[in-house]
Amino acid sequence: MIVPPWAGFVADFPDDQVEGGGDIQVFGGRNVAVALGEILASLGCSRVSAPKAAGEMGWEFTAYYEDRYPIFCRLQSFHPVFWLLFEDSSASKKGAVAYVALWRKFGNALEQDPRFHKILWRSFKEGPPDWDEVEATSDSPERAFEEEFPPSKIKIDKPRTSIWPYLIGIWLTASGIAAPAAKWGSSNLFHKFGYVVFGIILFSIGAFFLLIAINQNRETLLVPWRQRKHPKRARH
């Protein structure tokens, strides 16, 4: 199985939700998000951002493992039950390896932390565990984290390269070049100008998609090039 990124747990934190006029003014969970960020920092993460309000989706923050692999966290409060989404944002194979290592450390740390109980991990497809399921879980689980998720059981989820950014990028850049070129012979200057503007717009959007496409494969496309150019810098 690949890393289950959803977790549901009970946390011994005060409810920090702000309500007024029968409505929710500030969604709860910020205090727990801060605590989770501190745990990640203790596990070697850097640049742990302050939690940012995401409306009904709770609080979000990012951290960088080994100073280069981004991890995304979202915490939703249903006090005293919380949902956590712990996702790899790196889009690279090395990032995926680092993510698995961090996830293992984090799972163990969460289990060891006395403020968190009844921790259940779920796959992306399953989604977070239901509140009733979390609350019904025993405080002392039958199996420890390492027993439930031994290293041999967890596989690395290699980032999948999507062909769509390439197709869209090539399509739009080609259109951005060919459309004005085909109309360049027009004697109508206004017509010609219009197609040049269309061309610039299409080319820009296409180039942007190509950038996204290349970014997907930067380990195979860009990193080897960087290693050839700056071998020392690429090692860091």
Binding site: S90, N215, Q216
Partner: peptide, 16 residues
């Protein structure tokens, strides 16, 4: 998304 980690569903880490 607010996480600034993707565009139109495509992972884009440098966007962060």
């Amino acid at each position: 998304p607010q996480a600034q980690d993707r565009i139109l569903g495509f992972k884009t880490p440098w966007l962060k």
